Computed example of a mutant assay.
Amino acid sequence: MARLSILVSLVVLGIKYAAWAVSGSGALLSDAIETILNVLASVGTLWAVAFAARPADDNHPYGHGKAEYVWAVIEGVLVVLTALVILSIAGHDALHIQAPEAPLPGALLNASAGVINLIWALILRRMGKKHHSQALSSAGDHVLSDVWASLALLIGVCLIPILHWLWLDPLLSALVALNVLWTGFGMMRHSMTGLLDEAPPPELVHEVGQTITQAGQGALEAHDLRMRRVGALYFVEFHLIVPDEMRITDAHDICDRIENAIRAVLGRSSIHIHVEPEDLAKRHKPGASGVLVM
């Protein structure tokens, strides 16, 4: 998927470069520059997906899944820098306004590249959601933002020869830059939630809590449930209260049953259960939080 993304980006870049070469439009040049970033992003996504797929080792006992979040942040920074470059081009063109040579053929070429990007963005977003891949999801969002920019450019560049508004070309460049800037900040914000181990949605945490309650027959209580997700892997930990007279083997069987039930809900999961005696139960303690009574 990531390798195919590189190929698609190169094809789209070639089409957009041709659109600028035919038209001489600064706005279409800005769009082509933004697509250069798509090529670099595709290469980075290939690295991130491959690195994140590596199994856990002695130096990375929790796996390498956060590589995707790291790359998504780096990609966001590159997007912001690209936006600043495009803004500088828009500023230059605003001070040296000239009419595009052939805006309509250039706009049509750019529109064909936009169609390719739209199809590819939807594929990337679907695959990212399916495989819980932050790198693929970010790449899809990035490409989709390029589609909306191409649509705006198509309309704007076609209006230039009709309305004779020459200032519309640098204005479109500036709008492309602002769209890219907004996308970059959004990518960084979304990726930071994974790097900072933000908790999953409350409804999912509640579902896991209910699963623990249903599968934990024989135990007295579970509390201090904590969850986080790295890529497609969930990390779950909580304390399990068992009767003092319960044998270790029986407590172990309960833990196995709970783990199997959680994995049926979440899929790939690393689960840590801390078994505790009755006197550490929280259900009779006022103000206790995160308590799941069996």
Rank of each mutant, 00 (worst) to 15 (best):
S42N: 01
L78S: 07
S138D: 01
H132C: 11
Y69A: 15
A111W: 00
I160T: 10
P61R: 09
D141M: 05
N38C: 06
V43H: 05
P105V: 09
A135H: 02
L87C: 12
I89E: 15
I36W: 08
I89Y: 15
L154S: 08
H164Q: 12
D58A: 13
K130V: 00
E75I: 04
R126M: 10
A113C: 02
L37Q: 04
S150W: 04
W165N: 05
A149V: 05
D58C: 08
H142D: 06
Q98G: 14
H92G: 03
L166F: 15
F51P: 01
L109P: 04
M127A: 13
N59W: 15
G106H: 06
L168A: 14
L108Q: 09
V77T: 04
R126V: 11
W165M: 02
I162N: 05
H64C: 06
L78H: 05
W165Y: 07
L81E: 15
D58Q: 13
A50E: 12
I36T: 12
H96Y: 11
D141C: 05
W120Y: 11
L136A: 06
A41K: 00
G156W: 03
I74L: 14
A139F: 13
P100I: 02
S88G: 10
S133Q: 01
V79G: 07
A48N: 07
N38K: 06
A83L: 13
E101I: 15
L108M: 06
A113Q: 04
V43T: 08
A83Y: 10
A152G: 15
D141I: 00
L122H: 14
L168W: 02
H60G: 11
L118E: 05
I97Q: 13
A90I: 11
G114K: 00
A135Q: 02
S150T: 03
A72S: 10
L154Y: 03
A72Q: 00
I160E: 14
L109V: 06
L87K: 09
Y69P: 03
L163H: 10
V143W: 01
V77K: 00
A53M: 12
H131K: 10
W167I: 13
L87V: 15
G65R: 12
L163M: 12
N59S: 14
A90K: 10
A111P: 05
V70E: 05
L78F: 14
V43E: 13
Y69H: 07
H164N: 09
F51D: 12
